[in-house]
Simulated assay, not measured.
Amino acid sequence: MSEYLPKELRDQLAAAQRQGKRKRATRSVHVGDEAFAIIEMSDRGFAVLAEEAPRLRGLIDIYDGPQHLYQALIVASSEDGDLMRYDFKRNTATATTAPVDFVLADTRPAGLLTQT
């Protein structure tokens, strides 16, 4: 059916689909001061729109809105239509506390006794 539509209309439909994907994306990849919307994400990598992102490589940060989720090392994998796919070399979840190099003593009570 798309063969019967004028090229101008097909281009507008494709642009509208890309805009819809971009609006639905909540996660983003941050490289320096730039941020790009993540269209698809899996445990092996992620995809962004090819027209927006350059060929990214190296250390990046992944956010879900304002929350920092991961710090990852990536390499460009392939271009799949209008998506550019990247693979993780390393993907580390961010921690809310700093790592310690000693054993923490657990001084909390094991349970509470009730009065009877």
Rank of each mutant, 00 (worst) to 15 (best):
P109S: 02
A16L: 14
A76D: 02
H68T: 06
V29W: 00
A98T: 06
Y63I: 02
L112F: 13
A47D: 13
A16D: 13
L56W: 04
D101V: 03
A105I: 05
F88R: 04
I38N: 02
G81R: 09
P66K: 12
F102N: 01
A47R: 00
N91I: 11
E52I: 05
D61E: 07
I39F: 05
E8Q: 07
L113R: 15
G45D: 12
R18F: 00
L113C: 09
V103T: 05
F36E: 02
F88C: 09
R27V: 07
E8H: 12
A50E: 13
P99E: 01
E40K: 07
Y70N: 04
R85I: 03
I38H: 05
R18H: 05
D82K: 03
K23N: 11
S28L: 01
D64L: 04
D106C: 01
A25N: 07
A25T: 08
D61G: 03
H30C: 08
L83A: 07
L59T: 06
H30S: 11
V75E: 15
L49T: 03
M84Q: 15
L69C: 11
G58D: 11
A72G: 09
S77N: 10
D82H: 10
L13R: 10
K21P: 00
G111E: 08
V29L: 10
P109Y: 03
T96G: 15
R55S: 14
K21N: 08
M41C: 06
G32L: 02
